[in-house]
Design a binder for these strands. Structure first.
Lengths: 341, 341
DNA sequence: CTGAAAGCGCTTACAG
DNA sequence: CTGAAAGCGCTTACAG
């Protein structure tokens, strides 16, 4: 079996002293030319800039950070054990975050937490290697929020929280869900069933509120017997679907697309045609349902944009700028063949 | 709309000078007590250790790194646009990586790349903020490998490459696939269809080799007309399934579970019973198929362990230790109700 | 407009 | 066994 050993001959990088010496100026001057801070003659500035471009000198961000007491890192906290439905969300928002951070010369450190442990976050905080953190879509009880507040570390939640004191950026789930249900009510549908995942997730509670608001606005009574929350197992979903069929629901709305996938499979097994016999829609549009026939009516969110905006908010906040306490990102209601409105 | 501004009163952290002063020893001594390097009296060592425990002093990793010319960061490169089938893989391996890194006081920086751009990785390299990088399951052509080699940056591939000069750790896909097919052949099955995703992914080529080897070992002829590669669209999968049905295949083996999910939906629509009329298995066992009825025979991999091992390999390599050039992590063949062997 | 010097918080030869 | 000093690669008052 072949074996490797690192020779450790890293490329020797050129430093600020090297360029200062080469140009017969001081390090101070070089630093100023690069940062743009402090007065400096236009011609010297240009000389420095030309030289570093030609010799592709890159300042050492670590050293810069040490001098400025900054790290140019943010941490992204994601659940280590999220369910399948959330993966596309994390995947896409991550990309938005990374790109936005990159654009501001920041890097993002990954921290995974599990429901029972914030050990990784604690270590990260202790090590002090980041200027701020992004918390992602969270549970009702969040120890991470507590930790961050206690240590006075700037953070923004990519998600929704009832706590008015924390910065939050989220997809506008409530409005989206409300609009979808409103459209259904407008089209004459009345028996609109709802099947949702765990209420421990804030996002599911928010979606529920959108559903409720639509009924209030339409001055229609909401039939509680058509609502099934906490359906976090196949068995519960099965029960819910059967109840809804018995109750002659006209439409089944699923809170996320894992639920929706299950529902579709159950309906297929029972040979119940969508949308002819029952309509189906999902509050979240992901790759999971992309290839389904019929195509599923759902809410489209731009998770990458959400990630980018969240990152921008954090960076602005770290930079001492004023930022909005609560930001909601727009959605798109995409009606497809699985519904008839 | 409420607005926030960061007051910037970060907690003032205690430094090595503070503890040196408090104990009337030199910074050198404190440093030695902590690092364990260099001679130091047992009693002074204990005094220092007690003090820092009591006042929970944590050395500043950034400063430490600067002095040692290390960063205590590794970068993890993941595709920004991976497909659904790969998400659980990334999610789980990420967790393994983060935990292993954490255990060695390393942090992991996230770098997303897209097929057409390695810009984020290039920036990361230029900034020199990591000691090494983990590349994840990759395409046949990989610009990232080229970049890393060029800059002489230690890296390991979490995946498989034909390039013998790069460190690689991967699930033992080939053996797993071979064993599954061998078991099928042993049980008397002959017409074993295969439907796979894009051949641009190394992993799919590896799986294919496992499939082929099983036939060779069993001295059975492989019927090429039952093999469908590059099925990266629903339409192609549909075609493949129909061909296999026409050819009276006894079993359909899917290279990943997104393919498998499609296949199952198609079979359901055609009212073809699994496993009675046709058996179905998948080369990858993920949450996607978890709730399917019947349960699907598949290969189980411990992606979290894979991530941890990959991280360990990189860290060992960075640390100058000898590491194995190529490591394969074991799998588990899980036979379930979707097959009859 | 420019530079010498101190400092960010550590480590590590070197000397004792 | 312990410490003074130089150094990692930057920034930034301060002085000129």
């Amino acid at each position: 079996m072949e074996v490797f050993r690192n020779e450790g001959m890293a490329n020797h990088k050129i430093t600020i002293s090297d360029v200062a010496e080469a140009l017969s100026v001081s390090k101070t001057t070089v630093s100023r030319a690069i940062s743009g801070k402090g007065r400096i003659g236009e011609d010297t500035r240009q000389r420095v800039l030309d030289y570093i471009a030609a010799n592709d000198y890159k300042p050492n961000v670590i050293a810069k950070g040490l001098a400025q007491k900054k790290t140019y890192n943010i941490a992204l906290v994601i659940p280590g054990d999220c369910n399948l439905a959330d993966m596309p969300f994390f995947q896409n928002s991550m990309q938005g975050i990374c790109e936005e951070a990159s654009a501001h010369d920041y890097d993002v450190m990954l921290v995974t937490t599990s429901a029972n442990s914030s050990a990784n976050l604690e270590r990260m905080i202790a090590n002090n290697k980041m200027d701020g953190v992004i918390l992602s879509r969270s549970m009702i009880e969040d120890r991470n929020v507590y930790l961050l507040k206690e240590h006075n570390i700037p953070f923004v939640l990519m998600g929704t929280s009832g706590d008015k004191n924390i910065l939050q950026v989220d997809n506008d789930h409530k409005s989206g869900c409300r609009e979808m249900i409103s459209r259904m009510l407008d089209s004459g549908l009345r028996k609109i069933g709802l099947i949702g995942g765990s209420k421990n997730y804030v996002v599911n509670r928010t979606r529920m509120r959108g559903y409720q608001e639509a009924f209030v606005r339409a001055r229609q009574e909401l039939d509680e017997t058509l609502v099934f929350e906490d359906c976090d197992s196949p068995a519960r979903i099965q029960d819910a679907v059967e109840c809804l069929i018995r109750a002659r629901a006209e439409c089944i709305v699923c809170m996320d697309d894992v639920v929706c996938l299950s529902v579709l499979q159950i309906l297929a097994k029972k040979d119940i045609a969508v949308p002819q016999q029952i309509q189906v829609a999902s509050f979240y549009d992901s790759a999971l349902l992309k290839n389904n026939k019929p195509a599923i009516t759902s809410l489209g969110f731009d998770d990458k944009a959400l990630g980018a905006l969240t990152c921008k908010t954090l960076l602005d906040y770290i930079g001492g700028m004023e930022v909005q306490g609560k930001t909601r990102v727009d959605y798109e209601l995409v009606t497809r063949a699985s519904t008839l409105f």
